[in-house]
């Protein structure tokens, strides 16, 4: 898997500029071209357009300074439609988009713009939630992993590039259901015992990371995924969390909760939610 063209969407919000910085660093590490795109929606305030354009230009200057080939794209219309068109036309591999306040206030998986982009684009999408402006280059990246992982190769490639981009340490983290029996209740296992129960998909992911020579540490912990991930990041002072997009539908999220939503709400550091599409390429 090699990312050759990366697009980042800019708007009037400062988060989009920070998300674009992630995209720029990523593109530099991946040796990819960067498209900085602002889509002006009909009825958009002029002031907002000016702010977004200024941000896009700042990003372009940064990209030039970093030696990353870069294009500025100003479009008008529905952001999803326009970005989808660009992705298809220009064969974009990965889009970086900042999540908005609404993604946290409203239920993320019930129809926000981030959700629309994540679902509607034919390429991989990295949704970036920016919460902390002080950790400019994330040195410690927490990567929570589910038992069943799709797109292991692309996920590993993404983590490897990100780690290279910021010269960061990668901490793989698997939250597993506590081991329970009817009569004995919850059983205590030591980290070594948990390690022996590492799911096959995670082992495959680790192999992929090893293949890319990305050093990592790993840890397993029992508990409820969403809460445990944000606690882990807070306890160990991680600078960035990178997790996979939820595959839970609206009904499932309503009934069983949604770990991604919970981490979006409670994350103590910046968060990237990756929706990969490239399978084993």
């Amino acid at each position: 898997m090699r990312y050759q063209r990366i697009l980042t969407a800019i708007n009037e919000h400062v988060q989009s500029e920070i998300a674009a910085r992630y995209a720029l660093q990523f593109a530099a590490a991946a040796g990819a071209c960067l498209d900085i795109c602002f889509v002006e929606e009909p009825g958009h305030q002029t002031e907002h357009g000016q702010i977004a354009r200024a941000a896009a230009e700042r990003m372009q200057n940064r990209a030039k300074a970093a030696g990353v080939p870069c294009r500025l794209l100003y479009e008008r219309g529905d952001p999803l439609t326009e970005i989808r068109r660009i992705v298809k036309t220009d064969v974009v591999d990965l889009v970086f988009v900042a999540t908005r306040g609404e993604d946290v206030k409203r239920r993320f998986y019930t129809g926000t713009m981030a959700r629309r982009l994540s679902r509607g684009l034919p390429c991989s999408v990295a949704l970036v939630r920016v919460v902390h402006l002080g950790r400019i280059h994330p040195k410690e990246i927490l990567v929570p992993l589910k038992s069943r992982l799709s797109h292991a190769a692309e996920r590993a490639a993404f983590i490897a590039v990100l780690s290279r981009a910021f010269d960061s340490r990668v901490h793989l983290f698997h939250v597993t259901r506590p081991l329970r029996t009817f009569f004995h209740g919850e059983m205590h296992l030591t980290p070594l015992e948990w390690d022996q129960r590492l799911p096959a998909d995670i082992s495959r992911f680790i192999e992929e990371l090893n293949r890319r020579r990305t050093a990592h540490e790993r840890r397993l912990a029992p508990g409820v995924a969403g809460r445990v991930i944000s606690v882990e990041a807070a306890v160990r002072r991680h600078d960035l969390i990178v997790m996979g997009a939820s595959e839970r539908g609206r009904a499932g999220s309503l009934l069983r909760g949604n770990p991604v939503e919970q981490v979006l709400r409670e994350t103590p550091c910046d968060l990237i939610v990756l929706k990969p599409v490239h399978e084993n390429q």
Binding site: V131, H132, L133, G134, G185, E186, R227, S230, V231, A234, V235, R237, E266, P268, C269
Partner: peptide, 29 residues
Amino acid sequence: VFATGMRTEFGRIAQLTGTVTPGLSPLQK
């Protein structure tokens, strides 16, 4: 200002104070 609310160092302590739990006590189990 570079971090506010629960993303400050103080907020991190508050978050951990509010979320970490020791789990069920031996007697409860």
